[in-house]
Write a protein that binds this DNA or RNA. Structure first.
Lengths: 203, 203
DNA sequence: GTCATTTATTGAACACTGTTTATTAATTCA
DNA sequence: TGAATTAATAAACAGTGTTCAATAAATGAC
């Protein structure tokens, strides 16, 4: 049988990625497979290989969509003072991980085999996240150097990322719930305070 | 064929775990499998199931060993002032992740299927890590409440953990190398400063 | 010492996985 | 209408975790 479906390559790609997201959200990353995705859209698994190089390629394209969604949510937070904006970013970031645990897991926990390598455009997208942070930090301390901004952004965001990871994997061991917000706010506040004070004392 | 090997259940367990660690370090978590482990120690894959409930159980026992090793290294750091001890912990933690990337990955990134659940003894071990931090924080601020210590320890350690994760997955995007130490030290210093200052202002 | 019982070990099977390739069926073009 | 192209797939391959019946060795009873 052949060419009875009326989908273009682009349409098939979109169809597959949407189905993958649906499966991901419903069944989890562990049960995501080429055969399941294909069955879901009425194609055979082999057909997916006309549109994706391999399963990891499909995952990367999923991750690109997840990342775009995350970045869009960060952008939509609106204008705030730099410090408030950074806190809002942190809360949004962790809330996103909680809202889309499987997509977030695929984005940050999916390991690429050594034979393959993560495409540059995906890493560039992740780096754009850091750029957002750097921009806010630059607003806060206009005379900071680029390397200082880069380092501060990463140090700060490692903390936020750590909260997201450990919360998602249930490794925080905190009694009830809702303490994450407090953690994130103190994390950002203390770090920004420390940054500001140390710059002053150096000047 | 049967009972030609002279290994007790305990000896077989140890044999399998050691082989698994060797494979893990050499080939990576992705290539760790029951058949490979069994072949490595001259047994069939089915034999492993007389000693482990399933593959996840084997992984958990590997993780327990990794965790014991990590905790031992933290304990061996010797007596220091609380603040210096916490910095040393942070450096040691991230260095451990870099030294044993695959074991660390299995410990913190291996996802347990929903049908199974992580054994309590493993989570208890992870919690012991937080207790170490809490103890140092208590030395620093003796009048802090238990819940405050718990929250501060976790907030602080999320940052350290985040550095370890993102460094290991190459998602820090920092130019050369060696910047992690500086990140960790500022991370700890700023947070402890912020904690101290905010307590003062409240008193 | 012989026979029955227990126990350790495994080969083979099952249902999965990602991936490749030859084949087929439908469309397009001459 | 006939030939070339193209879309799609079934089937195969090597791998995975896991189960289970079969088997060979050790042990226990008499």
């Amino acid at each position: 049988m052949a060419r009875r479906r009326e989908h273009s390559r682009e349409a098939l790609t979109e169809l597959a990625l949407s189905a993958a997201e649906r499966l991901l959200d419903k069944q989890g990353a562990a049960l995501l497979s080429t055969r399941r995705i294909a069955a879901d859209i009425g194609y055979s698994a082999a057909s997916l290989y006309s549109v994706f190089n391999n399963f990891d390629d499909l995952c990367w394209q999923l991750n690109a969509r997840t990342l775009a969604m995350l970045l869009a949510q960060l952008d939509a937070l609106g204008d705030k003072s730099p410090r408030e904006a950074l806190k809002a970013y942190a809360l949004c970031y962790v809330a996103f991980a909680a809202r889309w645990p499987e997509r977030w897991s695929l984005l940050f926990e999916h390991r690429t085999p050594e034979t393959l390598q993560v495409p540059a455009w995906l890493n560039d997208s992740i780096e754009r996240l850091f750029l957002q942070i750097e921009r806010r930090l630059a607003e806060l301390v206009p005379d900071a150097s680029a390397t200082e901004l880069a380092l501060t952004a990463r140090t700060l965001w490692c903390g936020v990322h750590g909260v997201a990871v450990l919360q998602l994997r249930g490794k925080l061991f905190l009694p009830p719930e809702g303490k994450q917000e407090q953690m994130l706010i103190t994390l950002v506040d203390y770090h920004l305070d420390g940054w500001g004070l140390n710059r002053e004392s150096r000047a």
